[in-house]
Design a protein around this nucleic acid. Structure first.
Length: 885
RNA sequence: GGGGAUUUAGCUCAGUUGGUUAGAGCACCUGCCUUACAAGCAGGGGGUCACAAGUUCGAAUCUUGUAAUCCCCACCA
């Protein structure tokens, strides 16, 4: 007897096995030319972040795939790492400083960066430990961090390279300015939100004409301080004559021209637009077209500033909005206010309203790099799961804008550009210069800004593999391209598309072949998890309660391909139940195994019909699982495992075996040979989903002669389909199951107490007589009846419970145990139901076109069905008569 | 405004080239401590497949339209 504790206690096994795996170096994937690599790049989490359910799901899927491929014989490398996450981390630390009553300005750049590094040292490893708790099998020897020396060198290499190729340039443009974080952010970090705002109408007096005005409409009155024109459509009859004239800008008392520009839509608002070139993207373009001055009237923090009336200086932009309106009213220039719903850009990070700001920033030219990245998707070299994301990807690439890569932050890779204070030229290079490369002046100063975090992340497929330092690039050439990228669709542009571009640009090949977008985790009301709502699920809390395997199993079984997945804490009980089931099933099987047990190869055994059925189901599940995993239909793969273990192995396999296991006989060894074989297979099958419990159990089960046993289930062979059963017997057993279910049903619907002894007679077709007779031991056992007789003869039994199956009828004499009337009603209903079905079929068969045009096999099927249903109806009718007489 | 989806049992979803009486999990009802598991076993109820039209011998499945919901992209002041 192999003793297993009555309940599975995850905390007792998880740490133990994880350490064991690490000791045995089972997750490491050194370059091995004799083995085919299978690589997944882990999307690096923010270095200071904590594990949440989103990670829980996405990374569990990756671990599932990696473990599956590792067991399938691949050199599986899951590259782990973390991202310095410029904005997020700096924001976090700045908040901390604020609580401590200081600020980054007060500390100064050097001290602040030092502070951040300490912070990273302190909290940086946390999420990686959490990954270990989840059982993730990353190749920890390759752990990378975007600020590592080698990775930083790759960043610099790329910057210098692109700069030298003229693909990086500096320009003054309108950027998305975050007034809270005081930095520019890229278009992709902006989210537009519908806001219930206002459209305000007011007038500007036309210079030199008494009581003549031009009326404009705006959502942002505060920017009028920086107006340098009013624009109208040149075709607009109402305003044509005004073009070329000037208006006197109220409050600031400045003369500005009225210009004609096609951009203005006559039908919107008043048909006249105030133009603020330094604070609005459209106005910026108009400003350029008409050579208007660019007047900046706002400070970095969103307060008003510049050359404006004293009263507004330093006033917050939203307060200034109200003040301006008040002042316009006082001047009797204000006309009207209308409720107006419009899209307003917000910062993804700080959530504040984005301010378009005129400033000098660094950009990467993208068009040229985007082309091959788009082609790769068009010609199918790179494929998306779900496929529909391809369109989104292509749309973005086809309409790509240049990438603003400079950030006014201190946390990140500092831009390797030096400005000469004397000749004003620019110096860059792989090493920090000491003098200007043009005039040799020592008077040079490095750019204050750092690079966008994604400028290091986009090199993730390359830089962790020693690129570009390693001249031979053995590592990179082995692992790149990786096989699949598993990530969230929200970073398809920020990260995914850019990695494709970088990999093509610098390695002339793709970073990965497949892109799988995992579902977004939301609550039962469809809301995203958020701290403020408090609706999140902490995966670690759930792990503590149910164990990592239960969490992994549940997460995967709930997650469809793409889209959203609703989760609540109670869902994880499902996983816990399955873990418990697997534990107990194993406990049951192994209980009967002792030193006298001799496991035999399956081919040497004379198996029962139910064994063949079990083996057949097992083969089916193996095929399904491997196929579904290949298609990234992970929830379906897990679903079929669950159904095999619970519905086939436990509900039928173990139940059928019960009669055979107690005796010290050949049947016991035979049963155990099959059960241990299947259990071993199930543990391997389930291991990628539930690594801990499967390892604990697998280590305990005896070696089966048909199977190999190694040091760990981590590296055991993943089972694949290979027929080892008799299909005929498997099918016959399915009929026996059907019969057993019908007997059980008859008994329960008639309300016969379980303790009452029943005997069953079966009238059946000739070939079923043997099938049922051979199975009588199990029919008795599972249907809880004392005798079973099967015959082709008509059975004449009065007052019987009856059931009709395909090719057989069941009679259970019950004398006065049943409510005859209730039974009659049941049979009448059954007759009605079958009648309806038969009607449908006969309609089909009477339809001449159906008989003429449908394929032969469909017609045959329909005929057989007709036979079947009619004979069922006959039986029901006969049974009804039996009850009456 | 453009694009991508979704709509099947009370809930979450399968249903892979159109073809037996549309499935699963959870929830619900009933009966059971039957030699692992009451975190269990057994049985059961529940669906005009969003709506409408079309193609077809045959539609949950294909086409078109309608409605509702969700996501992404977009500079109409």
């Amino acid at each position: 007897m192999i003793d297993i504790e009555p309940t599975y206690k995850p905390e007792e096994y998880e740490k133990k096995w994880y350490s064991y795996w690490l000791e045995q170096n089972l997750f490491d994937a050194p370059v091995d030319p004799n083995k085919e690599p299978y690589t997944i790049l882990m999307p690096p989490p923010n270095v200071t972040s904590q594990l949440h359910m989103g990670h829980g799901l996405g990374y569990t899927i990756q671990d599932l795939l990696i473990r599956w491929k590792r067991m399938s014989g691949f050199n599986a490398c899951w590259l782990p790492g973390t991202d310095h996450a410029g904005i997020a981390t700096q924001m976090m630390v700045e908040k901390q400083l604020e609580r401590e009553g200081t600020s980054r300005k007060e500390l100064g750049r050097e001290a602040f960066v030092k502070h951040l590094e300490n912070w990273k040292e302190k909290y940086g490893g946390l999420i990686l430990d959490q990954f270990k708790t989840m059982g993730f099998s990353c190749d920890w020897s390759r752990l990378a961090y975007t600020l590592d020396e080698e990775l930083s060198e790759a960043v610099r290499h790329v910057f210098v390279e692109l700069f030298n190729q003229g693909l990086i340039y500096r320009n003054e443009r309108l950027v998305n300015w975050d007034t809270v974080l005081k930095t520019a952010i890229s278009d992709d970090e902006v989210e537009t939100k519908e806001i219930n705002g206002h459209l305000w109408f007011y007038r500007y007096p036309i210079e030199g004409e008494k009581d003549s005005y031009i009326k404009i409409a705006t959502t942002r009155p505060e920017t009028m301080l920086g107006d340098t024109a009013v624009a109208v459509n040149p075709e607009d009859e109402r305003f044509k004559h005004l073009i070329g004239k000037q208006v006197r800008l109220p409050i600031v008392d400045r003369l500005i021209p009225i210009v004609g520009d096609d951009y203005v839509k006559s039908e919107f608002g008043t048909g006249a637009v105030k133009i603020t070139p330094a604070h609005d993207p459209n106005d910026f373009e108009i400003g350029k077209r008409h050579n208007l001055p660019f007047l900046v009237v706002m400070n970095d923090d969103g307060s008003m500033g510049g050359d404006i009336p004293e009263k507004y200086k330093g006033m917050d932009r939203f307060k200034a909005r109200k003040e301006i309106l008040k002042d316009l009213k006082n001047l009797e220039l204000f006309d009207d206010e209308k409720a107006y719903k419009h899209a307003v850009p917000h910062s993804e990070r700080s959530k504040t309203v984005i301010e378009p700001k005129l400033s000098m920033q660094w950009y990467v030219k993208m068009k040229e790099m985007a082309q091959p990245a788009a082609d790769a998707a068009r010609n199918g070299e790179i494929s998306f799961y779900p496929q529909s994301w391809q369109k989104t990807y292509l749309y973005w690439l086809d309409n790509i804008q240049d990438w603003c890569i400079s950030r006014q932050l201190w946390w990140g890779h500092r831009i390797p550009i030096w400005y000469c204070q004397d000749c004003e030229s620019i110096t860059t290079g792989m090493t920090d210069p000491t003098e200007c490369s043009h005039c040799n002046s020592k008077n040079i100063k490095q750019d204050e800004d750092v690079l966008d975090t994604w400028f290091s992340s986009w090199l993730w497929p390359l830089s962790p593999f020693g690129w570009p330092q390693d001249k031979e690039q053995k590592e990179l050439n082995y692992f790149n391209p990786s096989d699949v990228l598993v990530t969230g669709s929200e970073i398809i542009f920020l990260w995914v598309a850019r990695m494709v571009m970088a990999n093509i640009k610098f390695k002339n090949r793709l970073p990965f072949k497949h892109i799988y977008f995992n579902a977004t985790v939301v609550d039962k009301k469809g809301r995203k998890f958020s701290k403020t709502l408090g609706n999140g699920i902490d995966p670690l809390e759930v792990v503590e309660k149910h164990g990592a395997d239960a969490v992994r199993f549940t997460a995967i079984s709930l997650a469809p391909l793409g889209g959203r997945v609703m989760m609540e804490v109670s869902d994880f009980e499902n996983g816990a139940r399955f873990v418990n089931k697997l534990w107990n099933a194993s406990r049951f099987i192994l209980k009967y195994y002792d030193e006298k047990t001799q496991l035999k190869p399956l081919k040497d055994l004379e198996l029962q019909a139910y064994d063949h059925w079990l083996l057949s189901e097992y083969q089916t599940v193996l095929e399904k699982v491997n196929q579904n995993l290949s298609n990234y239909r992970v929830n379906e793969a897990v679903d079929s495992m669950y159904h095999f273990v619970w519905g086939a192995l436990c509900d039928w396999g173990l139940e059928c075996s019960k009669g055979n296991l107690n005796e010290n006989s050949e049947t016991k060894d035979k049963s155990l040979s099959v059960l241990v074989y299947l259990l071993d297979g199930c543990l391997r099958l389930l291991h990628p989903v539930m690594p801990f419990i499967t390892e604990e159990l697998w280590q305990k089960i005896p070696v089966h002669p048909d199977l190999e046993k190694g040091a760990s289930v981590v590296t055991a062979e993943y089972p694949v389909k290979s027929a080892k059963f008799d299909e005929t017997q498997a099918t016959q057993w399915a009929t026996v199951q059907d019969l057993i279910t019908k007997i059980r049903s008859a008994r329960q619907t008639a309300g016969i107490p379980p303790k009452v002894d029943l005997s069953v007679s079966i009238k059946c077709e000739n070939d079923l007589v043997d099938v049922f007779s051979n199975a009588s031991q199990w029919i008795k056992q599972l249907a809880k009846v004392s005798t079973v007789t099967a015959t082709t003869e008509n059975v004449k039994l009065k007052q019987s419970l009856t059931q009709v199956g395909k090719g057989y009828e069941i009679f259970i004499p019950v004398a006065d145990l049943i409510d005859i009337e209730a039974e009659k009603t049941r049979l009448e209903n059954e007759k009605k139901r079958l009648g309806k079905v038969l009607m449908g079929i006969s309609k089909k068969m009477e339809n001449k076109s159906f008989m003429d045009r449908a394929p032969q096999d469909v017609i045959e099927q329909t005929k057989a069905q007709f036979q079947n249903i009619s004979s069922q109806i006959d039986s029901v009718e006969r049974n009804l008569k039996g009850l009456n007489g």
